[in-house]
């Protein structure tokens, strides 16, 4: 229950934070701390210093660009996302996920940027961010980089954020007309750890799928986009029968392992079940 020795640093601006992260050996970002603190208690992480960004105003907030892109500060909490009427209107999937995350207390502290930067296989947001074509703005000494989700997530507990860098902003493009996003997961108990997770986005025009994203979480080290499933969805009429596209998963080499909750084989099978359900739910939502 105790943390290892470490230094606490509180920068005032994103630039200060980047300077600290560059200059102080072994420093890491402390955002909401809802995972990091526990990793420290359990001796699973060993940083020398924590750079606390949760009070930096520039890293918080929810805005919409002129084109409808949702611009979210990385240190914006789940609670803020969940209660934002604008987010609920423009990107309901983002708000819904925030509203259901973990528990009341954690939603008040945990941040969307923290969830993405952790990139734990069971994390909620990474697969959604991939499905929504989110872009990540990463600040470093030499300025800002802007990365698509496909380049941001790099494997279990790994992202493109390098040493001395800070995720500042997540940009989520506007949802195309007629688009439906569904997130389905199988969890331990009613609402605990994810055993399998699938996010599907279907952009439907005139009853036909114009574009699609199918992404798995929980089974792989990183959110896994399923191009073959997407190919089978695109151009088809948006009916519940589309769920059969999930058959394509059987040809995907699934990298996953046994863990305390289930075997790898079960997790693979459940990924497919969740994918089917997500496709059906996305169809339903898109038609609405």
């Amino acid at each position: 229950m105790l943390l290892p020795p470490l230094r606490y640093l509180r920068p005032e601006t994103p630039e200060d934070a980047v300077a600290m992260l560059s200059d102080v050996d072994g420093s890491v970002v402390l955002a909401g701390g809802q995972t990091l603190m526990n990793m420290l208690k359990l001796d699973l992480a060993h940083p020398d210093a924590l750079v606390d960004v949760h009070r930096i105003d520039a890293l918080r907030g929810i805005e919409h660009d002129a084109d409808g892109t949702l611009v979210v500060g990385a240190a914006t909490t789940y609670a803020e996302l969940a209660r934002s009427p604008e987010v609920r209107r423009s990107h309901p999937a983002v708000a819904e996920m925030a509203a259901g995350l973990v528990d009341r207390q954690v939603r008040n502290r945990g941040t969307i940027g923290g969830n993405c930067c952790l990139n734990d296989p069971t994390s909620n947001y990474p697969p959604l961010m991939v499905a929504l074509d989110a872009r990540f703005r990463v600040l470093g000494r030499d300025g800002e980089r802007r990365l698509p989700a496909s380049e941001f997530f790099r494997g279990t507990l790994a992202t493109a954020v390098g040493r001395g860098e800070l995720l500042t902003t997540i940009e989520i493009p506007p949802m195309p007309q007629g688009s439906g996003v569904a997130h389905e997961h199988l969890q331990v108990g009613a609402d605990s750890w994810a055993i399998a997770r699938a996010v599907v986005r279907l952009d439907v025009a005139d009853g036909v799928v114009a574009d699609a994203r199918a992404v798995l979480g929980a089974v792989y080290g990183s959110p896994l986009r399923l191009p073959e499933v997407e190919r089978r969805l695109i151009g088809q009429r948006a009916t519940p029968d589309l769920a059969e596209a999930a058959d394509a998963l059987q040809d995907v080499d699934v990298q996953t392992a046994d863990d305390v909750h289930c075997s790898a084989a079960y997790r693979r099978e459940m990924a497919e079940v969740q994918l089917r359900r997500a496709i059906r739910a996305a169809v339903e939502r898109s038609v609405q």
């Binding site: 359990l42 331990v188 108990g189 605990s192 750890w193 305390v260």
Partner: peptide, 25 residues
């Protein structure tokens, strides 16, 4: 389940992995 793996390590060494039912369950 306080199960052990083949290496004799407890697989549910904390409340992350040992799910004690909550009110929601």
């Amino acid at each position: 389940d306080m199960a052990y793996d083949e290496n004799g390590q407890l697989r549910a060494g904390n409340f992350y992995d040992y799910h004690a039912a909550t009110a929601f369950d």
